[in-house]
Design a protein around this nucleic acid. Structure first.
Length: 591
RNA sequence: GGUCGCAUAGCUCAGCUGGAUAGAGCACCUGCCUUCUAAGCAGGCGGUCCCAGGUUCGAAUCCUGGUGCGAUCACCA
């Protein structure tokens, strides 16, 4: 299957016999389209072993390869580049192998498969999800699917930050100003409803601060002494003391939020195998911190707080447990990681968390290693960049966040408008149409976000709507739909029969060559936890196919040609569907 | 200030472990629906790959220094 191996072996033998040198690695690249050939061997690196000029060596190797390797039929040498051409039958055979391979490009999981957990989303329960969460969710879901395609067993999880001062603020505001209204009575989505009270808290809190400053307090004092904040803190304390009424309120409001989140997750097409709740796990880490203390890995300060010294690893000292014995963020992360390994016997864990927490995860992984957990070697922080607006970062307090639910709805509406204008699906049932608008609108949104390298910050301009043309989800979906239409019209029962003696044209070869790269692309996307690679690959494939489609008629008189071309088309469609699925995007039959 | 990351066309982004004349999309301009879906195809315009050194047959890519932007350095999460 992989031609580079046969070429490598042949060249290796040749150099050994002729020049008595042993060359271990060779450099190949795709032949640039302005030159003739299907693969290119770069000759320059070989000059280290064989002192001659690159063109001469290239010619020599070319002549040898044409004789020695059956699938190579021609070559040319330009400067230090040896361009090799494959035979017609090579391409036909490769296509046949691709078509007859079940789920070509992916690996099946078996008993020996790695068990990986992917954590993503992990929201606070005081406000609805925004565009930043959307990027997080889409990445987490896609990476999970990509890992599955690489033969891993995958568990998806989130940790819900359901406790703390933020939810108490919403609770307090609702108690004081809510007059008993509920999501039902206001017909609001639960997370938006609770978020509304978080905003109300902040507004009233600001008024109090202003009043205190006017009475002569410094800003800092005012922020700490504002009655509302003190009350919220009191509420948190009551919660920690398990006060029945407070816990009941906390549960009620959190449940409203969960209902809202459920809707958003379902809209995004993401789900989880298990939810962890911080209110249940925040105590977990403590015993391991204490154990670490006993083992001398950590140390205690005079005030009783527990620390770890990471200065030998180039980092600072880090607090692990407060003097009063309460836990901090990292304490619970230690416990949660240990719990997860216990619960699922995983041997790898991916944290989908923004790059603002790079330092935190460096520290966390180091601590787990120091505690002696072998699996700590297999923790990965999928550190993704911020979604920025034209005027900078999104800030919830300043109301510049892009709301997830609203954005999804807008995308679906846009899809509907475009589809209605084009009028190609007017004959579909109402329900079918709605499904299609959903698929296309979300396809546009998801692809828009996933095509960007996760590690990089990306820009979203709310004033400029997300495109449906060019390098977009709908463009790819469209190509899939068009191929389905071809298949319906071709009247061919079996797309897997390949018996073709005609000469392949350039575009057919290009498509087959690109299909051959699918396995390594999926593997690389898995290694790098990078869905953007799938986007790029799929986009390139679709462009190649569209060019082919538009320039060579597929359904023609000659049944043999039709059979061959429709088989290529079908395989392209299968590949699109496979890849879009890895991205969490649907592949419509029509559009 | 220390640490980490980023800088490529007017805008948004690709560019794999160094390889041929740096690529797409959007925008702008020109063609193509009497033949399989024009959310498409063919083409044009557009670049000091942030700057300066270095490494070598060869650097957008690696190294050093600088500039700019961002993140982080909490008994917040």
């Amino acid at each position: 299957m992989d031609m580079t191996h046969s070429i490598e072996n042949s060249v290796k033998d040749y150099l050994q016999k002729k020049y008595e040198v042993t060359v271990e690695s060779f450099e190949f690249q795709q032949t640039r389209k302005e030159f003739e050939g299907d693969i290119t061997l770069v000759v320059f690196p070989l000059l280290r072993y064989v002192k001659t000029n690159p063109v001469k060596l290239g010619e020599e190797l070319g002549e040898h390869l044409v004789k020695d390797v059956e699938q190579i039929c021609a070559f040319n040498v330009i400067k230090g580049f040896l361009n090799l051409s494959f035979t017609n039958s090579f391409f036909v055979n490769q296509l046949e192998e691709i078509i007859t391979t079940q789920d070509f490009g992916t690996q099946q999981k078996d008993e020996k498969s790695d068990k990986m957990m992917v954590e993503f989303s992990s929201p606070n329960t005081n406000k609805p999800l925004h565009l930043g969460h959307v990027r997080n969710n889409l990445l987490g879901h896609s990476v999970s699917e990509i890992l599955k395609a690489n033969g891993k067993e995958v568990f998806k999880t989130q940790i819900i930050n359901d406790r703390g001062i933020h939810i108490c603020k919403s609770m307090l505001a609702w108690q004081k100003f809510g007059q008993g209204e509920t999501p039902e009575s206001t017909e609001m989505k639960g997370d938006h409803f609770v978020g509304k009270y978080y905003v109300i808290f902040d507004q009233k809190y600001k008024v109090e601060i202003k009043e205190l400053i006017e009475k002569g307090h410094t800003e800092e004092e005012a922020k700490k002494q504002a009655p509302l904040l003190l009350e919220a803190q009191k509420l948190l304390k009551k919660w920690e003391e398990n006060d029945t009424e407070t816990v009941a309120l906390w549960q009620k409001m959190n449940n409203w939020v969960y209902e809202g989140f459920e809707k958003t997750y379902s809209d995004l097409g993401v789900d989880f195998d298990k939810n962890y709740y911080e209110s249940e796990t925040y105590i977990l880490g403590k015993e391991f911190v204490l154990k670490g203390l006993k083992d001398g890995i950590f140390y205690k300060k005079e005030d009783g707080s527990i620390w770890v010294d990471l200065s030998e690893d180039g980092l600072d000292e880090k607090l692990l447990l407060r003097a009063d014995g309460t836990s901090v963020y990292i304490t619970q992360d230690i416990g949660t990681a240990i719990q997860r390994v216990k619960d699922f016997q995983i041997n790898g864990l991916v944290y989908t968390v923004g790059n603002e927490q790079d330092y935190h995860f460096k520290v966390l992984f180091l601590i787990l290693k120091k505690l002696g957990f072998a699996w700590a070697e297999h923790l990965y922080h999928l550190s993704y960049g911020m979604v920025e607006l034209p005027d900078g970062k999104m800030k919830s307090r300043e109301g510049t966040v892009v709301d997830a639910d609203q954005l999804i709805e807008e995308m679906v509406t846009s899809a509907q408008e475009i589809a209605e204008e084009l009028g190609k699906i007017d004959d579909l049932e109402k329900e079918e149409k709605q499904k299609l608008y959903q698929a296309i609108g979300k396809g546009a949104l998801k692809y828009f976000i996933l095509k960007v390298d996760p590690r990089k910050n990306m820009l979203f301009d709310p004033k400029e709507s997300i495109d449906f043309q060019g390098n977009t989800g709908p463009f790819i979906q469209y190509t899939h739909a068009r191929i389905q239409s071809l298949k319906r019209k071709a009247n061919i029962a079996d797309f897997s029969v390949i018996d073709y003696k005609n000469a392949l044209d350039l575009k057919e070869k290009d498509i087959i060559k690109h299909l051959l790269k699918l396995p390594s692309t999926i593997a690389q996307a898995g290694d790098e936890l990078n869905p953007a690679l799938i986007c790029n690959y799929t986009y390139d494939l679709v462009k190649l196919f569209n060019s082919f489609y538009q320039n060579s008629p597929i359904i023609i008189e000659d049944k043999n040609v039709t059979q061959f071309r429709i088989s290529i088309a079908d395989q392209v469609a299968k590949t699109i569907a496979l890849n879009l699925n890895l991205l969490g995007i649907e592949s419509p039959q029509r559009m």
